[in-house]
């Protein structure tokens, strides 16, 4: 099977400046939220992006969609570099890539009916008139498992899971190729999470969608993804096929992260040897020199403080950034 690259990210950097002074404003530093990412997303796959809070996974998603303009780097989508695009040209590309947000309460305008919310992208992009959009909205509602008659209701009349379905319908309205799902289920209850994940999987099968699935729940990411990338403090530490990553994790951070995930099975839990990381994530304003993980790494050596480990391919499609991993 030849895989077609839908999205190519090279050396993606996003720094948020820290500015001081009210009259004379000067930059005193930067939050290095994302600091040099290189990876591909293939058409039709789900790439899981995992990491703990503050590791830059959401910023990555937003920088790809140009919701945050990257500080440096290339984001090639369907062969065109989005970073250098502006205005109408970029707006046009936005049809092809959409986003589903974490908080289904904050990401829907409370003063618009769900019909208006779902239909808005169609009208804004001049694809349909208001009248034509109505039919399409009903189709979309049915598609995500909501009653089409609900189009005239307001977001507060829906539960969290239903609201998230509205968010999915809105993202689908323009028939995009790529959907960035930014923690789409973390605000939902366990029994509702499965409903939304199953819906996302069904829609992918039906429309050949490509997902960038951002989450911190490694069990769910393993379930939904084809490949998984692990981030730590603004950099990618490992990227591999889902089974490869879970059975043959090479980076010490990935190993620790995997061992920290509780398994809902007391027998398996008893047999597990948990690797507990010491300390906490350092600040992205002043990250450690060399390897960013070295302050918590059980394997850290002198070289880790001096040199930033290269992002290299150590097996087929298995990338890692660690000095201690042999090629």
């Amino acid at each position: 099977m030849t895989k077609e690259v839908l999205l190519k990210v090279e050396g993606l950097v996003k720094h948020f400046p820290i500015v001081k002074g009210s009259l004379v404003r000067r930059q005193v530093g930067a939050v290095k939220a994302v600091d040099g990412l290189t990876f591909n997303v293939y058409r039709g796959e789900t790439l899981g992006l995992v990491g703990e809070s503050g590791c830059g996974k959401s910023t990555t998603g937003r920088a790809i969609l140009q919701l945050h303009r990257p500080t440096a780097g290339v984001v090639e989508f369907e062969g065109k570099d989005l970073v250098r695009m502006k205005g109408e040209e970029l707006r046009h590309m936005r049809r092809r890539m959409q986003m589903i947000f974490q908080d289904p309460y904050a990401s829907l305008n409370p003063r618009m009916t769900v019909g208006e919310i779902i239909g808005e992208p169609l009208i804004v992009h001049g694809i349909m008139t208001k009248k034509e959009a109505e039919n399409r909205v009903e189709e979309l509602l049915a598609l995500v498992g909501l009653n089409p008659a609900y189009a005239n209701r307001y977001p507060h009349e829906f539960s969290g899971g239903q609201r998230q379905r509205v968010g999915v319908a809105r993202a689908l309205a323009l028939q995009p190729a790529l959907i960035v799902c930014d923690e789409p289920i973390s605000a939902l209850d366990v029994s509702i999470q499965a409903q939304v994940v199953n819906l996302l999987e069904d829609l992918q099968g039906q429309f050949g969608l490509t997902y960038l699935f951002i989450a911190h729940d490694l069990s769910m990411v393993r379930h939904i993804s084809n490949r998984i990338a692990v981030m730590y403090l603004g950099v990618m530490v490992e990227l591999a096929d889902r089974d490869e990553l879970y059975t043959n994790a090479l980076h010490p951070y990935t190993q620790a992260l995997l061992s920290a995930v509780p398994i809902p099975d007391p027998v398996a839990e008893e047999k597990r040897r948990r690797q507990i990381l010491q300390g906490e994530i350092p600040s992205p304003i002043n990250p450690p020199s060399g390897c960013r993980f070295r302050t918590r790494c059980p394997l850290a050596a002198d070289i880790c403080a001096q040199e930033r480990p290269a992002w290299r391919e150590v097996g087929t499609e298995h990338f890692v950034a660690c000095h201690m991993v042999k090629a």
Partner: peptide, 25 residues
């Protein structure tokens, strides 16, 4: 049964469809 079925497991290789509990509490 439903709750346990709706949870994917990090140590699980085969991909099965999650059992979802329809409706709301």
């Amino acid at each position: 049964i439903g709750l346990l079925g709706s949870l994917p497991r990090v140590d699980q290789r085969e991909r099965r469809r999650l059992i979802s509990i329809e409706g709301l509490p």
